[in-house]
Computed example of a mutant assay.
Amino acid sequence: MGDRIEAARWGGKLAQEGPPLQQERARQTRRSILRVAAEEFAANGFRSTSLMSVARRAQITKGAIYHHFSSKENLAASVVEEHYALWPALVEETRAEGRSAMATVVTLLDRVAEVFRDDPLVQASARLQLERSVIEVPLPTPFVGWTALLTELFEAARAEGGLRPECRPEVLARVVVAAFFGVQHISDALHQRADIVERWQEVKETLLPGICAPGTAAALTTCR
């Protein structure tokens, strides 16, 4: 597939597109709406967030929101899509640094943990995915992009000799995705993700000795 990660892997474009954004002011307004909406959704959830509250915080009219987004549902879907749009650049940047495949997995997920801790857009998307049953538009399917990417990286790690031969890349990818996103969900529920980096470090220290080629796990637990 090469190093470029296709947008379709992360869910594609599902929300209704807004008008053509030919002016920088319009682009800035749309970005502002998405950022404020993300903060509102992350803090209050879908049901308790109103377009009026988003408009007040963004210092625009409710009509200005409707110029870019047809409904609260469409705005929520767009927030989720903006979240998924973050990952391809981060993946490509990390892969371009020339680490081994196993070190790339570890470094990438370390950085993703920090994004979950710090970025309201990502936090909002995670909450909206949990509330998808009450959002009456499709949202990008979670987890499948990460599972496909990690399968690819673990296959490369096996070819490099960095993975224990008994490990199956596709199974390992599912396990690591479940572990990582389980950690982020529990960290959110208990501590608003303040401890996600530390909890992810514990998972790495537990998992890596069982999957890495002998003698390589210790260096990877502190890989950056």
Rank of each mutant, 00 (worst) to 15 (best):
L121K: 04
L121E: 02
L121H: 01
L121M: 14
L121F: 00
V122M: 13
V122K: 00
Q123Y: 06
Q123F: 00
Q123V: 03
Q123A: 10
Q123G: 14
Q123L: 05
A124V: 08
A124P: 04
S125P: 04
A126T: 08
A126N: 06
R127F: 04
R127I: 13
R127T: 12
L128F: 05
L128S: 05
Q129F: 10
Q129R: 10
Q129S: 07
L130F: 05
L130D: 15
E131R: 02
E131T: 10
R132K: 14
R132N: 10
R132M: 09
S133D: 15
S133W: 04
S133K: 09
S133A: 15
V134M: 06
I135V: 13
I135H: 02
E136K: 14
E136L: 14
E136P: 02
P138F: 12
P138W: 13
P138K: 07
L139I: 06
L139A: 10
L139K: 03
L139M: 11
P140M: 12
P140A: 10
T141Q: 11
T141W: 01
T141E: 15
T141D: 11
T141C: 04
P142V: 07
P142K: 07
P142F: 00
F143R: 11
F143K: 09
F143H: 15
V144F: 09
V144Q: 13
G145L: 08
G145R: 06
W146L: 04
W146K: 00
W146D: 05
W146P: 01
W146V: 02
W146C: 01
T147D: 12
A148S: 14
A148I: 07
A148W: 08
A148N: 05
A148P: 00
A148F: 02
L149T: 02
L149P: 01
L150Y: 06
L150W: 01
T151G: 06
T151C: 08
T151E: 12
E152N: 05
E152Y: 01
